[in-house]
Design a binder for these strands. Structure first.
Lengths: 229, 229
DNA sequence: TAGTGGTCTAGACCACGTA
DNA sequence: ACGTGGTCTAGACCACTAA
């Protein structure tokens, strides 16, 4: 348990009151000044606790409107997006890597629109990641050749996934989860039947210097991504 | 842009320095006192900015060890988990709901272990959610009959998903994403071929009073979940 | 317009973990 | 042992927005 008077203790007590029904859904709770007086702490401490709950979707706060317990809370689930090698090693398995293709190709329309790509050919890199010698995830990536030139950056031993995180970090972009049937290529490399259900992550990455990359990671059948609530 | 001297402005400047290479990966950055002096603000303001970046995985902070730019940052992607009706309505579509089954059954082994269920039969509720009259997601749920008794709580018009959020909120549990092939039942209700790749969310929910529910939401083919980075 | 949360300050003490 | 981040305080002003 947290020592009393800390913001964690106040957060825990607020959660308890919500679960116990003292602060029922839809109701407005006492304002920060009142709670600070009740708990015998500074208002900033109450603020820290309630702000934390609000960020988790468990409270709704508005200036002048006060703080309310939402009728239908929108919880947040967070996934940790690490580089694939660390992900595999974190499972206690040995990471393997195999480059499949690295070539200049005109990107498909979906990639053009996702990245807002105006140019011609992009660098298409395909690679397989293994966990204990078994197929783990297929990396299918389109790179801006101006930012990641093929004559200077090679992906034979270090995956594009890892190179990008190390060299063009802290960029912005979108990320989405979907399920897709394995096509012939995915089935071959992942060692599953064509049409098998694959969990896939699609991610676009941009910087101020323009589009960087679009990648689709297709995981071997049965893969499961755990989130923290 | 943020007004200078705010914690958002300091966070933005820190991000800029990381992207620009002023604070390269692996390096230790100045401590809070130094930055506060540089930016002409209180240390608490710097703390707020750097703590925010650390929570996003963009910095690593340790007492005595200082603050470092991680070599391979572990980014966090967050999904908003709303009730299904709101999810559908948020897409500008009309939500429909159809109860398929509500019966007492012995749960499969996977459900027993996921929930830590020691008893016998559980309440099995299956329902289909629709968006503009088209299948949206199949809800396959196992409920603790002691906490959600069939003679008192009915799911003909209000889904179990919504009832639980409104009546047993703020509980803890796990959540996981996976892809699975549509079985005969899923194919029938979702209107797709058997074996089609479905994105599924599995969620277990517990309270101090014991296991509450295990649910698997299987989305219609093509569904995509967008996350915020 | 007035009430409430959002934020900043200057100072203090504490907890953790490195050296 | 000691340096650094984690947190609390008391007070202040500001920004948003509901009344």
């Amino acid at each position: 348990m947290e020592r009393p008077g800390t913001w964690q203790a106040i957060r825990a007590e607020a959660l308890r009151r919500m679960r116990a029904g003292d602060w029922p859904p839809g109701e407005r709770i006492p304002d920060e000044a009142e709670l600070a007086a009740e708990f015998g702490c500074a208002r900033a401490t109450v603020n820290r606790a309630l702000r934390d709950l609000a960020e988790a979707g468990l409270l709704e706060r508005k200036r002048k409107g006060g703080t309310r317990v939402p009728l239908t809370p929108v919880r947040k689930a967070t996934f940790e997006i690490a580089i694939i090698r660390r992900d595999v090693e974190g499972r206690g398995q040995r990471h393997g890597y195999r480059l499949i293709e690295d070539a200049l190709r005109p990107p498909p329309e979906a990639v053009r629109t996702a990245l807002g790509w105006e140019g011609g050919a992009m660098r298409h890199v395909t690679a397989l990641h293994l966990a204990d010698d078994r197929p783990f995830v297929l990396e299918d990536r389109w790179l801006n050749p101006a930012l990641v030139p093929a004559d200077r950056v090679r992906f034979e031993t270090v995956s594009a996934n890892e190179w990008l995180v190390r060299n063009i970090p802290y960029s912005s972009g979108d990320i989405g989860f979907l399920a897709r049937p394995a096509d012939a290529s995915a089935a071959r490399w992942l060692g599953c039947d064509a049409g098998a259900a694959l969990l896939a992550i699609e991610r676009t990455t941009r910087s101020e210097a323009g589009p960087i990359t679009f990648v689709r990671l297709s995981y071997a059948p049965g893969h499961r991504m755990e989130a923290m609530l």
